[in-house]
Simulated assay, not measured.
Amino acid sequence: MDGLVKEVIPLLQYLIPGFLAAWIFYSLTAFKRPDTFGQIVQALIFTFLIQSLVVGLGALLLVIGEGFFSVGVWDRKSEALLSAVIAVLLGFLSCYIASSDKLHRALRRVNITRQTSFPSQWYSAFSTRPRFVVLHLLDNRRLYGWPIEWPAEPTRGQFVIEDPSWLDGEGQEFQIGAEAIVIDVSNVQWVEFSQQNGEQHDEQGSSGNASLLQTNG
C-alpha cells in the first residue's frame, strides 16, 4: 500500500497543474464543462503544455545561473512552484484568448478557420454587439432595454435587462419604472439587436432597424 501511495503522489503532483489550468478556464468562461473523460483530456493537454514550458524555462534558468548569476537551487520544489505559476498564467491566458476572439480573428484573416473563439453563435452575437435589445416574449409583448447579463445558451438561463421598458405595436416606449428586470430565456421567442450601440447606452429611443436572433423557445 505504501508503495502504491509513493507512486500515485508524484503522478498527482505532475497532473495537478493541468487540472488547475483547466479549472480556471471553465470557471471563468461560458464554455460548458465536458464529461469526465473530456475534462481529463483537457487537463492532460494543459499538463503537456505546462511541463514543456517548465522543461524549457528550467534549462534556460540553469544556463543563466551557470553563466551569469544564480538566484537559487533548481530542485523539485522550484519545479513545482514554476509549474503552479505557469498553470495559473496559462489558465488566464486561455480565458483571454477564448473571450477576446483575437486569435481566431487573425486566423480567419488568413483563411485557416471560419470559427470564432466563443462557445456558440448565440454567445458570439451578444459578445460582439454591445447594444440595446428587444426581447420578443411568448405572450407577444416586447421588452426593450440594455442587456447587462444574458444566458450563455439559448435554452436555459436568464436575461438581466437594465433600463427596461415595454414597446407597443408602433414602437413607442412605456417605462416599467424599475432599474432592471430578470427574464427567463424560456419566455423569449427571439431577440432583436438595436442600432443603438454602447456609446448610446445612456440615451433612450426607438429600436430602429434590428437584426434577429431566434431562440429555441
Rank of each mutant, 00 (worst) to 15 (best):
L20K: 03
A21M: 11
A21H: 12
W23H: 14
I24Q: 07
F25K: 11
F25P: 07
Y26N: 12
Y26W: 06
Y26P: 13
A30S: 08
F31S: 01
K32C: 03
K32F: 04
R33G: 03
R33M: 08
T36M: 10
G38D: 09
G38Y: 13
Q39C: 08
I40W: 06
Q42N: 15
Q42M: 13
Q42T: 14
A43I: 07
L44G: 12
I45P: 03
I45N: 07
T47N: 15
F48I: 15
L49R: 02
I50H: 13
Q51G: 03
S52G: 15
S52D: 03
S52V: 06
L53F: 15
G56S: 10
L57W: 14
L57Y: 12
G58V: 12
A59H: 04
L60W: 12
L61R: 11
L62M: 07
L62N: 11
I64H: 09
I64W: 15
G65L: 04
E66Q: 09
E66H: 09
G67I: 02
G67F: 05
F68K: 03
F68A: 15
F68R: 05
F69M: 05
F69C: 01
S70Y: 05
S70K: 14
S70T: 14
V71H: 06
G72Y: 14
G72W: 12
G72R: 14
V73K: 10
R76G: 04
R76E: 11
S78F: 07
E79G: 08
L82C: 03
S83H: 01
S83R: 07
S83F: 01
S83K: 03
A84L: 14
A84V: 09
V85M: 12
A87Y: 09
A87M: 09
A87D: 09
V88I: 14
L89N: 05
L90E: 02
G91E: 12
L93M: 11
L93N: 07
L93I: 06
C95W: 10
Y96K: 01
I97A: 14
A98N: 05
A98L: 05
S99R: 09
S99M: 10
S100Q: 06
D101C: 02
K102A: 13
K102I: 13
L103I: 15
L103K: 06
R105D: 14
R105Q: 13
R105Y: 13
A106Y: 11
A106Q: 09
A106E: 06
L107H: 04
L107G: 03
R109I: 13
R109K: 15
R109V: 10
N111L: 11
R114A: 14
R114L: 08
R114K: 14
Q115E: 15
Q115G: 04
T116H: 10
S117W: 02
S117G: 13
F118P: 05
P119W: 10
S120A: 10
Q121H: 06
Q121V: 11
W122M: 03
W122A: 04
Y123I: 02
Y123R: 02
Y123A: 15
S124N: 08
S124W: 01
F126T: 01
F126K: 00
F126C: 01
T128E: 14
R131F: 00
F132T: 01
V133H: 00
L135H: 00
L135T: 00
H136F: 04
H136W: 08
H136L: 00
L137M: 11
L137A: 02
L137E: 00
L137G: 01
L137P: 00
L138W: 00
